[in-house]
Nucleic acid binder design. Structure first.
Ligand SMILES: [Mg+2]
Length: 717
DNA sequence: CTATGTAAACAAC
DNA sequence: GTTGTTTACATAG
């Protein structure tokens, strides 16, 4: 295939580039920055509207983006631009080392720069190193001045060529040998949409996450045995060896093992759709439900019906006609449906349950493991799945929910204990507190004009509101409040999805809903030069960079990071009620002199909330509290036995503990309406720049703030 | 569309 | 290994 690629280089580049442009531009837009460094001179994919993002991988957000850089940075020269040996410039050497370190998986390795550490035996490196001259000579374009060992084509072009050259116009990452693709089940599939070879595949380019094969394969151990068997059978019957295919990816190590696991949910949409994540139909940690069998019985015959996985997935072998679109298979267990239980444990969502747990705590806060425990203690379903293995799933879900919902706020525990406190965000919106925005900007549909227009419209309004709010905020800076007030306000302003895409056109600026980088105290973070170059005029709040000046701040981080608070264990260094908000350097861990602030404390600083009994309670020493168990929690809701009690086990709580959220409303309203004062620590607060596209307004705001020093600010907007 | 559940990658600890 | 954050993708309404 690679030879083929090279052969087709000259011809294919022109024809393929057109249909690929959207894809690449998308990647460019989101920080991949690939285009900026494409080697091909006549790269039609280059988007001139966008400036190249810094290629320093240490300049990027440490989490995920770096992984993507290597594959996209086809040219070794990129590395030359950064003196990686200078740790000071890029933060911790560890960080840099990690970025430049061995590929985490085969997929990355496969696309890795040839001079990198690609461990892919069949990847470009091999071919190139064997006959670079051949490749070059076959390349009609500038054979003598080829930019790469293999010619002038960039990786992107090569990939494009490869994909377009395939009969189905699709390839798996590991598919480097021959067409048609070997049926490896879900490895092939595009998500839900039935793949249409005539269409450009949906681009799920994610600058923060490399494409992993195994991301599309659920773990075998997570699947009900019957499904495993089914899949085994199916795969076997397809006449193609999964293992061999996987093996081709090389370097996959554990990933390869995972990928090789012929796991899956049969031919059914859910499991077989190539989803990296699961679905709520037959969760792995529900696999012991008796309904699995029912599901299997219901889905396998109708959806799988003897097809190979690949076929059932809409992939034909040998370029034949596409099979009819597969059915959607419903997975919800029938008994669950009969009981009208959204979930096997009842009606309450995770977030609801978490909230109850937190509310049940004397001081309204729990640590993660305590939340776990609460689940186990109070809900039979989870109690029955308390084993390490079984609990992994729902614990993951808990964590996920905690992080995802602004409704939950994390209070960093600076004490010896690492685990943070989790509390209800007192200012969470009463109604729905939307989950954090998903990153959809990297999809084609998300960047449509209509979308942008809509976004723009929404943002305009927000800008106006924001200006007004800021005016009121800064008009009274003398009282007591807590960072949560501010951050929540920000959240209220910006937690809308419509804010997404605002930075679509800002290179290297990926709208992120959250990031640990938004916590200035996080010393492990590296200051990307991108910050200096791109964010220079974005000016972060003074308190943000004060103690950690090198910490890069992505404005957007502050937007959604409404649930992140930091507490000072001693409460003795200037914070309000011992609370310090994201502005101190990470202290040496010591046992807190005083317990971390409870929910009450968090609330009390902004005024009592009579509606919430919790707030009237005396502050309880939090060192050893026990969450309030739920009366009747164990009730008869077990094994789905009771339908009438579905969800009822929770109902006793709200009656005794009126919603904290109601208090949150009051608090929030108070904050906004009365310009509730800010803690002294925040006097210098500058509202962080937010992903609003109207940078003019932002600039104005910034100017105002900087001129006024955060006080006596008014906006003429 | 949104809300939710599930899986998983990753990073930090 | 645990804690947190994100992303992806699935279903349901
Ligand atoms: Mg949260």
């Amino acid at each position: 295939m690679l030879e083929m690629l090279v052969d087709q280089t000259a011809d294919a580049s022109s024809s393929a580039s057109t249909s690929t442009s959207s894809v690449v531009s998308s990647s460019n837009r989101f920080g991949g920055g690939a285009d900026a460094f494409l080697n091909t001179p006549d790269d039609v994919m280059m988007n001139d509207d966008l400036e190249p993002i810094p290629r320093d991988r240490c300049n990027t957000w440490p989490m995920r983006r770096p992984q993507l850089e290597p594959p996209l940075n086809g040219s070794p020269m990129i590395h030359d631009q950064i003196p990686e040996e200078d740790p000071d410039l890029f933060g911790s050497s560890e960080q840099c080392g990690r970025l430049g370190g061995p590929s985490t998986n085969g997929s990355t390795a496969m696309l890795h720069s040839p001079d990198g550490n690609s461990s892919h035996p069949n990847a470009f490196g091999n071919e190139m190193s064997e006959s670079p001259d051949d490749a070059a000579s076959q390349n009609s374009k500038k054979a003598t001045t080829r930019r790469n060992a293999w010619g002038n084509m960039s990786y992107a072009e090569l990939i494009t060529t490869a994909i377009m050259a395939s009969p189905e116009k699709r390839l798996t990452l590991a598919q480097d040998d021959d067409f048609p693709p070997e049926p490896r089940g879900r490895c092939y599939t595009w998500p839900m949409n039935q793949f249409d070879p005539n269409l450009i595949p949906p681009h799920h380019y994610n600058p923060y996450q490399p494409i992993h094969h195994h991301q599309q394969l659920p773990h075998m151990h997570n699947l009900p045995q019957p499904l495993l068997n089914l899949n085994m059978t199916t795969l076997t019957s397809s006449g193609s060896s999964v293992a061999s295919s996987i093996g081709g990816t090389g370097g996959g190590g554990a990933n390869a093992t995972t990928q090789g696991s012929p796991s899956g949910g049969g031919g059914c949409n859910q499991q077989a759709s190539g989803s990296g994540g699961g679905s709520n139909g037959s969760p792995s940690h529900h696999q012991h439900e008796q309904t699995v069998g029912q599901m299997l019985a219901a889905t396998v015959p109708s959806c799988s019906s003897g097809m190979t996985l690949g076929m059932s997935l809409g992939m034909s072998q040998g370029g034949g006609p596409m099979p009819p679109k597969k059915k959607r298979c419903r997975k919800k267990p029938t008994d669950q449906l009969a009981q009208k239980k959204p979930n096997p444990w009842g009606e309450e969502s995770y977030s609801d349950i978490i909230a109850k747990a937190l509310e049940s705590s004397p001081d309204g806060r729990l640590k993660l493991n305590e939340i776990y425990q609460w689940f186990s203690d109070n809900i039979p379903y989870f109690r029955e799945r308390s084993s390490q293995e079984e609990a992994a799933g729902w614990k993951n879900s808990i964590r996920h929910n905690l992080s995802l919902h602004s409704r939950f706020m994390r209070i960093q525990n600076e004490g010896a204990g690492k685990s943070s406190w989790w509390v209800i965000n007192p200012e969470a919106k009463p109604g729905r507190n939307p989950r954090r925005t998903r990153e959809r900007s990297n999809t084609i549909e998300a960047t449509t004009k209509a979308q942008l227009e809509k976004t723009r419209r929404g943002a305009k309004k927000r800008i106006k509101d924001r200006a007004a709010l800021m005016g009121s905020l800064h008009s009274g800076l003398n009282g007591n409040s807590v960072a949560g007030s501010i951050t929540s306000i920000q959240n209220d302003l910006y937690d809308d999805d419509s804010m997404q895409g605002q930075f679509d056109n800002i290179p290297g600026f990926r709208p992120r809903t959250q990031s640990t980088m938004s916590v200035p105290g996080n010393s492990s973070r590296v200051s990307p030069s991108i910050g200096a170059e791109i964010y220079d005029d974005l000016e972060f709040p003074s308190w943000v960079g004060e103690t950690t000046p090198t910490v890069p701040q992505i404005p957007n981080d502050l937007v959604d990071r409404t649930d992140q608070m930091r507490i000072d264990g001693g409460g003795a260094n200037g914070g309000v009620n011992g609370i310090q908000i994201k502005q101190e350097p990470k202290p040496i861990k010591t046992e807190p002199i005083a317990p971390p602030p409870s929910y009450h404390e968090l609330n009390s600083v902004r005024g009592p909330c009579a509606q919430n009994p919790l707030l009237r309670n005396p502050i309880v020493p939090s060192t050893n509290f026990k969450p309030m168990p739920l009366p009747g929690a164990y009730g008869n809701y077990q094994n789905g036995g009771s339908t009438t009690n579905a969800g009822g086990w929770l109902n006793s709580v709200p009656t005794t503990l009126p919603g904290i959220q109601s208090c949150g409303i009051v608090a929030a309203q108070h904050t906004v309406a009365s310009s509730s004062a800010l803690p002294i620590d925040l006097e210098n607060l500058t509202l962080p720049d937010q992903p609003l596209m109207d940078m003019d307004v932002d600039a104005l705001i910034r100017h105002e703030l900087s001129q006024a020093g955060g006080q006596h600010i008014h906006f003429d907007l």
